[in-house]
């Protein structure tokens, strides 16, 4: 019988993973819960209704009629005493208070609250129209609700990228330090095992765990939220696998010296935090000031998320993403080589 060390190491890694219920939970079940939760929280809802309070006065009944069906729609109007109106505005129960005076309408609202600012515009619009204003140019609304351009479409590839990062860093870093604490690494290097075989088996294990992970995340997106994968599924999987490899390399580097689980946990959080915030998981990094963009683009998760979105949402081909793919490859390989060099075995 022939024995192949890399294959045995890799098999053992895979067996260990699937026999560890916690690892399976964090890799497969947790992302699913996260996607369902966030998907429900950010699903497209009918337009918000606007809460408007009108101060009780002679003209308040007219104003109320102007803001209610059949004249206007979308407002929840209440007429109250001035003191009550102000109190409700302070507590955020209403977005705007309308005071009908002899000189005209007076709007009272907090300009730092976005819903109040938009309420001011909508209310003024409705009142002016009711008073007889006519629009010089005709305008009509076209509401964006179709798959492909909703927030959930933006979110799912970001969550996939975030999971690939977490899996690579935690799945490798934690396991490695745990083996070091148990002196298992020391026992392994006391045998004639090739050190690179051992590190490669960890990365290889991650590759295997990634395939179902991608399937779970994208499957949930497609089945529950009608996400449309416009690119080729094989391309999506290729980008994901490369990302997983790259983050495994980074995970090995993070774990290469740490002697205690606490140390590696801390290091991992330090590495992941900027990527969580900046790499465009939940919102586009275009919102950050331009001078930050070069730094943000240097983060591997940014490259991975951009490539995933391009392939999933825009149907881009792999070659068009060459820069991101090359960047992830160089990053992963570089970290792997440094880890192999600096690795503490006992």
């Amino acid at each position: 019988m022939e024995y192949h060390a890399l294959k045995e190491l890799w098999l053992c890694r895979v067996r260990q993973f699937y026999r560890e219920p916690e690892a399976v939970f964090w890799t497969y079940v947790f992302p699913l819960i996260m996607i369902v939760g966030l998907g429900i929280a950010f699903r497209n809802r009918p337009a918000e209704r606007i809460a408007v309070d009108v101060v009780k006065s002679d003209g308040s009944a007219d104003a109320m009629a102007a803001l209610s069906p059949p004249v206007a729609d979308g407002f929840d109007v209440e007429v109250r005493r001035r003191i009550d109106c102000r109190e409700r505005l302070r507590l955020g129960k209403t977005s705007i208070v309308v005071d009908v005076t002899d000189e005209g309408y007076v709007y009272r609202y907090d300009p730092t609250r976005p819903e109040s600012v938009s309420a001011r515009a909508r209310v003024d619009d409705a009142l002016q129209r009711a008073a007889g204003r006519t629009d010089p140019v005709a305008a009509s609304d076209h509401l964006v609700m179709e798959p492909g351009s909703r927030y959930i479409d933006f979110l799912v590839p970001g969550l996939l990228g975030m999971n690939l990062m977490g899996g690579g860093l935690w799945g490798i870093g934690y396991v490695t330090v745990d083996m070091r604490v148990r002196k298992l690494l020391k026992r392994l290097v006391a045998s004639p095992m090739r050190r690179s075989d051992f590190l490669l088996s960890l990365v290889g294990g991650r590759l295997i765990f990634t395939v179902p992970e991608v399937a779970v995340v994208l499957g949930a997106g497609v089945l529950l939220f009608d996400i449309m994968i416009t690119g080729r599924v094989a391309s999506v999987m290729a980008v994901a696998l490369l990302g997983a490899c790259s983050f495994s390399g980074i995970g090995l580097l993070v774990a290469c010296r740490a002697r205690r689980l606490e140390t590696v946990t801390g290091l991992m959080n330090v590495i992941m935090l900027p990527m969580w915030l900046l790499s465009g998981i939940f919102f586009s990094y275009e919102r950050f000031p331009a001078w930050l963009h070069p730094f943000i683009k240097a983060l591997p998760l940014t490259q991975l998320n951009d490539a995933l979105r391009a392939v999933i949402l825009e149907g881009e081909s792999l070659p068009s993403q060459w820069f991101a793919l090359l960047y992830l490859t160089v990053m992963g390989t570089g970290c792997f080589c440094l880890a192999l060099r600096w690795f503490r075995w006992n």
């Binding site: 053992c12 067996r15 260990q16 026999r19 002196k183 298992l184 020391k186 026992r187 006391a190």
Partner: peptide
């Protein structure tokens, strides 16, 4: 061939 004074081999294997 070596045994160390303390090693905890992979529990799940």
């Amino acid at each position: 061939g070596i045994t160390l004074q303390e090693t905890r081999l992979n529990d799940k294997l």
